[in-house]
Simulated assay, not measured.
Amino acid sequence: MSSNHLTEYADASPEVRAVFDDIMRTRQVDQVNNFWKCLAAHPPTLRRTWDSLKEIMAPGALDPLTKELIYVAVSVTNNCPYCIASHTAAARKAGMTEAMFGELQAVVGMANETNRLANGYRVPLDDAFKLE
């Protein structure tokens, strides 16, 4: 289904509404964003994706801000404007400052540059870096 299909809460099936309700309750928001509305076209994908995201992004060994910063970094690298916007907003809500955002972008840019150089030159792995 194309991105033109957004399932609004009022038009959602009970199964989709249950996921939407959980998203709003968990995120403490009064509406779900378009990503979830698009996934609602296939309820099993909506449920699976939400359950996985909710589990992975829950507090754990990494704090919520660190998880959001990682999400932004990967989204930038994968060139996903929607995820960049969504997770930048979530990172700001979790306490990311403009200075942190600037440093994050510098690290992402440098990591991408050096990754490409290492791949292009086929740099052999140092013995000290090898896992035992």
Rank of each mutant, 00 (worst) to 15 (best):
N4D: 10
S75F: 09
V108C: 07
A73G: 13
F20L: 00
A41K: 15
S75L: 11
I56V: 15
I84Q: 02
R92C: 04
V107H: 12
G102S: 14
P64Q: 13
E132L: 08
Y71W: 06
P43M: 05
H42Y: 12
I70F: 11
S13H: 04
N78W: 07
Y71Q: 09
Q105K: 14
N112F: 09
V32K: 06
A90V: 03
D63Q: 00
S75I: 10
V16A: 02
R27Y: 07
L117R: 06
T45V: 13
I84N: 05
A111C: 07
V76S: 03
V108T: 15
V32G: 03
N4P: 02
M57P: 09
A85R: 15
V123I: 14
C38N: 15
D51V: 09
A91E: 00
N79P: 01
Y82S: 02
V16Q: 03
P59S: 02
D22F: 07
D30P: 02
E8C: 12
P14K: 05
W50P: 07
V19E: 01
H42L: 14
V107C: 00
G102C: 04
A111S: 14
K54C: 13
P64M: 11
T88R: 10
H42N: 13
L117I: 15
A90E: 07
V76C: 10
V29G: 12
C83R: 12
T77M: 06
A106D: 13
V32Q: 10
E55G: 07
M24H: 11
P14T: 10
M1P: 04
L53N: 08
A91M: 02
S52G: 11
A90K: 11
I23H: 14
A12C: 00
N115R: 03
E15R: 10
F101K: 04
D127H: 08
T45R: 15
H42R: 15
A89F: 01
N119C: 00
T88W: 04
A118Q: 07
C83M: 13
N78K: 08
M100L: 10
L131M: 14
N115E: 01
R25N: 13
T77L: 04
G95E: 00
T7L: 11
S3Q: 08
W50D: 06
A85M: 11
A58K: 13
L53Y: 09
A10C: 03
E68D: 12
V108Q: 05
V76I: 15
L39F: 12
V19I: 11
C83K: 10
T66W: 08
K37F: 06
M96E: 00
I70V: 15
L131A: 14
K130G: 03
N119Q: 06
T114P: 00
G60D: 14
R27W: 06
M1L: 07
A118N: 05
L62S: 13
E68L: 04
N4W: 06
R17Y: 00
I23N: 01
Q105A: 15
A91S: 02
E55M: 14
A58W: 05
P59G: 12
T26E: 01
A128S: 09
G60M: 07
T7D: 02
P124N: 10
P43S: 10
D21Y: 07
H5F: 06
N115Q: 10
